[in-house]
Design a protein around this nucleic acid. Structure first.
Lengths: 166, 166
DNA sequence: TTTCAATATTTCATTTATCAGATAAAATTG
DNA sequence: CAATTTTATCTGATAAATGAAATATTGAAA
């Protein structure tokens, strides 16, 4: 006989209700918001999503290293590096070598970049309003606080799974 | 004179606190969860993220058309079509032409696919637990309800911006 | 029925994202 | 101080996501 059929009864796992499964909800909504940002926002300013994010981060945090930029929004470092190179070429930001640590380069927005940042901020504020308009102020607050916790937790999980193997 | 400098005072927009800005938070967390799913889950089963999602949807909803699969998790239809073609070739799911409407093909999991689905469900349950372990049951409930509302809202926004132009 | 618009799926071209080195400058250790 | 490790950045190959046709089929309207 080729195989026992009685062994290891493959008892079905009860499926997941994807509409009420938080990780799925977060992936779906995060992805949708990203697509919105590209199609309605970034593209109209001649930017891709990575560039759009870089400008936001530098506009918000001020002079930053490339790693600081990448880490703030959990972006790939290689990609961030390239996005910054493009924005530099286009005169949207400037890079200065750090005298204290010559591995680093420090990134600032040029006036052109600041103008773009202002456009982005306006878009982003309006967008948030549109997205959240149905929620009470209380719900928004609660949601935002919970998200802060979860992001921290996700960071810890990434750290965990990088110590054993990587 | 080249340009007036007094006109159009470029008053700085006050920057955004990205750590407390919900759209940014959602993008960051959604992206991180997706990367987790790929690195810790899908890849170990020989799947990419699109395939992983397809199996979840079909495992949960049962026999579905390709559009139903794509729509449930807001995936690209082209990508979904290809993912399904690959899974079909590998014997993970099967496709049947719909007799009532020959444009459609109906997708089911094979036993091999059901086994994969079970693995995915186990991973996903454990992952959610790990991610949410610090939240009270009340917070989880609240969060999940709020997310349901927001996803609906995001759908409405997508619909809006598709009627005028597209 | 013929024609036209809508739907489901597929395919293709292109852009983005991701990962794994490579390089170079600190920081640390013996 | 030499040797080693860590950190910051960059680059290139590869994989994945996206958007715009192309195809086939259905349903509706004239």
């Amino acid at each position: 006989m080729a195989k026992r059929k009685t062994k290891k009864a493959p008892r079905r796992e009860t499926p997941i209700d994807l509409d009420r499964h938080l990780p799925a909800q977060l992936m779906v909504l995060g992805g949708t918001i990203g697509r919105h940002a590209v199609r309605e926002g970034a593209r109209k300013l001649g930017l891709d999503l990575m560039e759009w994010r870089v400008i936001q981060v530098v506009g918000t945090q001020g002079r930053s290293t490339i790693n600081q930029v990448a880490d703030r929004l959990a972006m790939d470092r290689g990609g961030t590096s390239r996005a910054i190179a493009r924005l530099d070429e286009r005169g949207i930001l400037s890079r200065t070598a750090d005298a204290k640590d010559r591995r680093r380069s420090l990134v600032d927005l040029t006036p052109k970049g600041q103008a773009l940042h202002d456009d982005i901020v306006r878009f982003v504020r309006a967008y948030r309003e549109r997205l959240l308009r149905r929620l009470s102020a209380k719900d928004r607050d609660q949601l935002q606080r919970t998200m802060t916790n979860l992001i921290e937790e996700a960071g810890a999980m990434l750290a965990e799974c990088w110590s054993p193997e990587h």
